[in-house]
């Protein structure tokens, strides 16, 4: 039996100085190769959950296993290598003086040098069709180019799990379509936090909804998005003029 990529049981976390739990008793299992959309209103804990996956945050309560490792101080180096986290704002992710240096940053931290490092950079850029961005500086790229470059910075590390935070923010419809096509073609396990329902429907066969610091809905994206009343109950709404035929009810809880 294949081990799940992510196993979360009763995960709880609150930020220092805050009395409010951002995650509280959250359960989730993601199988290897799945693409799962994380849906939820602002402040529902999507980003906090993603930050747990490669050890930027560690669980305060509950258990979190990622790619077979219990998330904790002893596994952080391994998780940083195997879990690629793409931040919401590409300008936070593209901090080196050229895109090539940015794409090389992760593999170089893994100890790659010379031809190995070069191969990793080429792989990362080629994965997103951004070879031409290699010598460009991050500031003057378009939103879509920044997004692709940010993705290349983690793909060069050949992650087994990709965690993407609002990957469509700032993208125009064409850019969103191109990104969806790109992610579908990657084949890695993906957790995608998004407010973009159409993007979730296009890229993720499965969605989970976070509300009240836990997972409240989990099911096929199409079925989940078909129930507007249920979505509304958890602070979500479909775009204007958008309706999916209701076929099957998603499982509650």
């Amino acid at each position: 039996m294949i081990e799940p990529a992510v196993e979360i049981a009763e995960l709880a976390f609150r930020y220092p100085g805050s009395k409010e739990w951002v995650l509280d008793g959250l359960d989730l299992v993601v199988r290897a190769g799945e693409r799962v959309a994380l849906l939820g209103a602002n402040g529902s804990g999507k980003t906090t959950l993603l930050a747990h996956l490669n050890g930027l945050l560690t669980p305060q309560q509950g258990a979190l296993r990622v790619l077979g490792h219990q998330v904790g101080p002893s596994s952080i180096a391994e998780l940083r290598r195997r879990v690629g986290l793409v931040f919401q704002d590409p300008d936070d992710q593209l901090f080196m003086s050229t895109i090539g240096d940015d794409v090389a940053f992760g593999p170089a931290n893994l100890g790659l040098r010379g031809s190995e490092l070069e191969r990793a950079v080429e792989l990362g850029l080629a994965s997103v069709g951004a070879e031409y961005l290699r010598d460009r500086v991050g500031h003057h790229l378009s939103g879509g180019e920044k997004r692709r470059a940010a993705l290349a910075t983690v793909l060069s590390m050949e992650p087994e799990l990709l965690a993407l935070d609002e990957p469509t923010s700032g993208l125009d419809p064409v850019g969103t379509r191109e990104l969806a096509k790109l992610l579908i073609g990657l084949g890695t396990t993906q957790l995608i936090a998004t407010h973009d329902m159409a993007f979730a429907l296009e890229t993720c066969p499965r969605s989970v909804v976070l509300s009240g610091a836990k997972v409240v809905l989990d099911g096929p994206t199409r079925e989940l998005l078909a129930d507007e009343a249920l979505l509304a109950a958890h602070g979500l709404a479909l775009p204007f003029g958008w309706r999916i035929p209701q076929e099957v009810q998603p499982t509650e809880g």
């Binding site: 986290l85 300008d91 936070d92 901090f95 090539g100 940053f105 992760g106 170089a108 893994l110 983690v154």
Partner: peptide, 23 residues
Amino acid sequence: RGERIHLAMLSRGYDGSLPVTRD
């Protein structure tokens, strides 16, 4: 933003010393 950049660096294996990214 500086804090977020630091997190982005950590998430790609930064351990306090900048790596050599080109020959």
